[in-house]
């Protein structure tokens, strides 16, 4: 079968695109390799999406988006798209399990967390180093935790981690936070939160579990080793230092800028019939509200594209 629209990724952008596409009575398939919801499914609080008031968790928001998209008839499937042939009129997407055909494609593959890139990080992931507070917070009950980063995610996740950890230290490479002022205020008031300014982690060590890290002061160049408390034996490092776009599939195919897909106000990429939506495109604000807006625009533009390019 040739779908009207195939959407790669079921984060907020993909789910919104699915909702709009299915509602426009286009045959719509959303392909997702992991859990529905993308990045937002990993956070406990989404306080800035209009209408999501009173403790709306990421997973709760996502499950409503899924229900709504499916309610209008969007089909969802689990598969990993591994390669694409999108230059022809019928676009072909090759998944790990199956091959898919579509008249139009919406690329909503989002972004993945950036790593620190220091020695020991990879080996100690899941052994003290983490990129997901809701996944791993519970391990650190009564232990010490360091959160790397200074943006909204870093500070909000640091606050979430105070529910478990004895103490949470935010390690930031500058001398002030980048997070929204309201979030900062809460963090400064939280007695469990401490700060290590002008600092970056340069080394992580441990035999089985994280035990020691080296922190470098970027102003003075001075390096300090921080060891786990003897009774604890270990501590946590949670990394929220930004994201890399998940655009490997389209490298060399569509126009990109620093790895992000270039698209116009209508989400059109450099290939006709291929649209981009969400965190993977060049834009100034990467949030749920902009991801869902992108998805809606991409879907309505896909409808227009099909009307103009395919005979009934």
């Amino acid at each position: 079968m040739i779908y009207d629209v195939v959407i790669i990724g079921s984060g907020p952008a993909g789910l919104s695109a699915g909702l709009y596409a299915a509602r426009a009575r286009m045959s719509t398939l959303i392909i997702e390799k992991e859990a529905a919801g993308g990045q937002i499914a990993t956070t406990d609080e989404v306080a800035n999406y209009p209408g999501s008031v009173e403790n709306v968790t990421g997973p709760a928001l996502v499950s409503r988006m899924v229900e709504q998209a499916e309610g209008f008839g969007a089909k969802r499937i689990t598969d990993t798209i591994e390669s694409v042939d999108v230059t022809g009129k019928v676009k072909i997407l090759k998944g790990e399990n199956e091959e898919y055909q579509a008249k139009s494609v919406i690329v909503a593959t989002g972004a993945v967390p950036k790593h620190i890139g220091c020695p020991g990080e990879k080996e100690l992931t899941g052994r003290g180093v983490s990129y997901c507070a809701t996944c791993d917070g519970a391990f650190f009950e009564e232990l010490e935790v360091f959160v790397v980063g200074g943006g909204d995610s870093a500070v909000e996740e640091a606050m979430y981690l105070t529910k478990f950890a004895r103490k949470v230290t935010i390690v930031h490479r500058r001398d002030e936070l980048r997070a929204a002022k309201s979030i900062q205020e809460k963090a400064f008031k939280n007695e469990k939160i401490d700060f290590l300014w002008n600092s970056v982690i340069t080394d992580l060590k441990g035999d089985g579990l994280l035990e020691t890290m080296t922190v470098k002061n970027v102003k003075t160049g001075e390096e300090t080793e921080i060891h786990a408390d003897e009774d604890d034996g270990t501590f946590g490092v949670f990394v929220f230092i930004g994201y890399d776009p998940a655009n490997k599939l389209f490298e060399g195919l569509v126009e990109m800028e620093n790895g992000y897909i270039v698209s116009d106000d209508n989400m059109k990429t450099s290939i006709p019939g291929v649209f981009a939506a969400g965190d993977n495109r060049v834009k100034s604000l990467r949030q749920v509200v902009t991801a869902t807006a992108d998805g809606a625009i991409a879907a309505t533009q896909a409808e227009k594209y099909i009307e103009e390019n395919f005979e009934e």
């Binding site: 992991e34 859990a35 529905a36 997973p59 997901c132 809701t134 996944c135 791993d136 917070g137």
Partner: peptide, 10 residues
């Protein structure tokens, strides 16, 4: 796994 770990549940 844990109940709050979405990737685990997926």
């Amino acid at each position: 796994w844990s109940p709050s770990c979405e990737p685990c549940k997926a």
